[in-house]
Nucleic acid binder design. Structure first.
Lengths: 327, 327
DNA sequence: TTGTAGGCGTTATCAG
DNA sequence: CTGATAACGCCTACAA
C-alpha cells in the first residue's frame, strides 16, 4: 500500500542504495539520477518509514514529557514552550498526563524507557518512582527532585516565597496563612514554605501552612478552602500555592462577605500569561516559564550529546504587583 | 548497551523465539522455561525495543494531536481528555502546537504521515492543508472543516449562539456585539455567528460582528477590544467568541468605567472547568469537552479498524448562567 | 558514480 | 512444547 524505497528505486530505474542516497543527500549523484529519483518520489508521494529509520539509527527523534495535566495553565504554558523549543531542534513530543492515575506515571515510564524516546522531561507530583534509576535515558526534571543523577530546572522558589510574604507583611497584616501541597513530596516548591516561615519568624509573626493536595477536584478544593476560613476566621492574608487556587480562595472569601483587599489580602504563585491577562488584579510571583522550558531543553540536549551538566538550574522570579496583595 | 531479546534468550538458555513467546504470552510454554526467561528479563532489566516492534507490526501505537496551543484552557482540557481516552486504549500521544507557525502544521503533518502515527486528531485554525488528502491515514477533526472524507466532531455551535444571544436579549438590551474569528476560516464556530445574526434579526435588532484573529497576542487583543469600545461607545452587551477573551473584555470595560452587568452584559463561550471555577460569574456556553474527546477517540478508533463512520457528530451545549449575562 | 549484502530488534510461520 | 528462518523498511560498508 504505502510505497517504500524499493518502489521508488524501481520506478526510477535505480537501486535502493541510490534512492536512499538521494533521500539523504549523501555521496555523489549525477544530476540525471537525482532528477529521476526525485520525480519517482513525488509521483508515489513517498514518505520514508519512521520505524525503520529509528530501528537503524537507534534514535527516535522523540522526547517524552510527563506532567500532571496540561489543563492547568502553568503546565499548559510550560508544555507549550517545551514543545516549541524541541520542535526547533527537530524533536517531536510525546506527552503523558499523570495526574489522574498514580500508576500511569510508572506505566508511561516503562514504555518510554523502551527506546520509545530519546529523552524525558519530567515534572510530575507523584513519588517513589524507582524506574528512573534503571535507565540510562537522559532525563531532566522541572521543579521536582528525582535523584542525584537527574538535573533539576526550577525557578527560585525560596526567593518567590520571600517576595510574596514580604509583600503581605508590608501592609501590616499579622495573620498570614500559606497554602501548599503535602510536605512529604520532595519538591523544590517546599522552599516557598521555608521562605514563608523564615520571613514570618524574622518579623515575629506566627506561621501556619494549610495543606491541600494538588490532585483534588475543584469541588473538593473549595471544600478545603472553606475549612481554611472556618479554621482561621481572623485570617488577614493568604499566600496561595498557585494562582488558580488563589482565585478560588478569592471567590470563597467574597462569598463569605470578605472584601479584597480590604478584609483579605491574597498573593498567588506561577504568574502564567493567562492569569496575568484574565485576572490582572491578582498579585502573584511570576515563574519564568519560557526560560525554564528553554533551559530544560538545553540541558536535555546536552545530556543526550553526552555533555556534562550542572545538578541544578535556578531561574529568577519576579513579583506581579496587583491590587490583591496590598492595602 | 541495552539488552535485546537475544541477550535474554542466551542468559535463559533458550532461543529468541521462546523468549519472544514468553514476552507476549503466546503459545504453550513449560513452567520451567517461563520462569527461566522471566528471571533473565528481570536480571537484565529488559525492555522490548519499540521501533523494531513498530517496524514489524506496521503500527506505532501513537496518535498525533494537532492543535493551536495547549496554553489555552479549552485546548488544554481537550488535549487532557484526549490523552486520557487514548491511554485507556493503549495509545500514546504526539502533540503538535501549530499556533505560532503557519508552516508548522504542514511540517508536522508531513512527518506524522510518514507512518509515525496510526491516526490523527486535528483541531487547528490554519487553512489550506492539502496534505490531508494525500494520505490514507485515519483522521478526525474537532470543530474544524477539513474535507469531505474527514469526520468532524463538534459541539452544537448554532444552538450555542442561540442560547447566548437569547440570554442577552432577555435583559432588554438592544446593542449587542458579537466577537469572532475571521469569517473566511471554514470552521463550525462560524455557525455561532449565523445563529447570533438570525436571533437578532428575529427580534428586529441590528447585528454587528467584530472580528479578532485568534492568533493575536494578549496585548494585541486588548488593543483590538479597546477599539471595539471606541467603535461602539453605546454597546450594551457582548457575546464573545471565548471565555478568555470575554474576561479580557470585562477588564477593559471596567477600566473604561463600565460596571458589569449594570452597564454591560457579557457572555463567553467554551465553559471550561477552569474558567467556571475561577470566574464563576461569567455567563458562558459550555462545550461538552469530555464528550467531544470521547467521541473523537471513538470515531478515530473506528476509522483505524476500518469501520464506517458518520460525516459529522454534533454534541449538545448548555448555558452556564452567571451574573454577567443578566440584569 | 552506482549496486550488493547484511544488519538494526522483533515477531510469525513452519518444522520438529 | 521449542527452534531456525525470513521478513518488516531503511541505511551503510564494501565492491565494482
Amino acid at each position: 500500500m504505502k510505497p517504500k524505497l524499493e518502489d521508488v528505486a524501481k520506478l526510477a530505474g535505480v537501486s535502493k542504495t541510490t534512492a536512499s542516497r538521494v533521500l539523504n543527500n549523501r555521496g555523489y549523484l549525477s544530476e540525471k539520477t537525482l532528477k529521476k529519483v526525485h520525480d519517482a518520489m513525488e509521483q508515489l508521494n513517498y514518505q520514508p518509514n519512521a520505524a525503520a529509520r529509528q530501528l537503524f539509527k537507534q534514535k527516535t527523534g522523540l522526547i517524552g514529557l510527563i506532567f500532571p495535566t496540561v489543563s492547568n495553565p502553568f503546565f499548559g504554558e510550560l508544555v507549550d514552550y517545551l514543545e516549541y523549543e524541541l520542535y526547533q531542534r527537530q524533536f517531536k513530543v510525546i506527552i503523558g498526563n499523570s495526574l489522574q492515575d498514580i500508576s500511569k506515571e510508572t506505566d508511561y515510564l516503562n514504555q518510554l524507557l523502551a527506546g520509545q524516546v530519546d529523552g524525558l522531561i519530567v515534572g510530575t507530583h507523584n513519588q517513589g518512582i524507582a524506574e528512573y534509576k534503571y535507565s540510562h535515558l537522559p532525563v531532566v526534571a522541572i521543579d521536582r527532585v528525582m535523584n542525584s543523577d537527574i538535573p533539576i530546572v526550577e525557578s527560585d522558589n525560596y526567593n518567590g516565597g520571600v517576595l510574596a510574604t514580604e509583600r503581605l507583611i508590608k501592609s501590616g497584616v499579622k495573620q498570614i496563612i500559606h497554602t501548599n501541597g503535602p510536605v512529604d513530596l520532595e519538591t523544590p516548591a517546599n522552599r516557598r514554605r521555608l521562605a514563608y516561615e523564615k520571613v514570618m519568624q524574622d518579623h515575629g509573626l506566627p506561621h501556619n501552612t494549610f495543606t491541600v493536595d494538588f490532585r483534588l477536584s475543584y469541588n473538593e478544593k473549595k471544600e478545603q478552602y472553606n475549612k481554611l476560613f472556618d479554621l482561621y476566621p481572623n485570617v488577614e492574608a493568604i499566600f496561595a500555592s498557585n494562582d488558580v487556587d488563589a482565585k478560588i480562595i478569592m471567590t470563597i472569601a467574597e462569598e463569605r462577605g470578605k472584601k479584597i483587599p480590604d478584609n483579605l489580602l491574597v498573593v498567588g504563585y506561577d504568574g502564567t500569561e493567562l492569569m496575568r491577562n484574565i485576572v490582572p488584579e491578582l498579585t502573584t510571583v511570576i515563574q519564568p516559564i519560557e526560560e525554564m522550558a528553554k533551559t530544560a531543553v538545553d540541558v536535555l540536549i546536552k545530556r543526550i550529546s553526552g555533555v556534562q551538566t550542572e545538578p541544578e538550574y535556578i531561574l529568577p522570579v519576579t513579583l506581579w504587583d496587583g491590587r490583591t496583595g496590598i492595602k
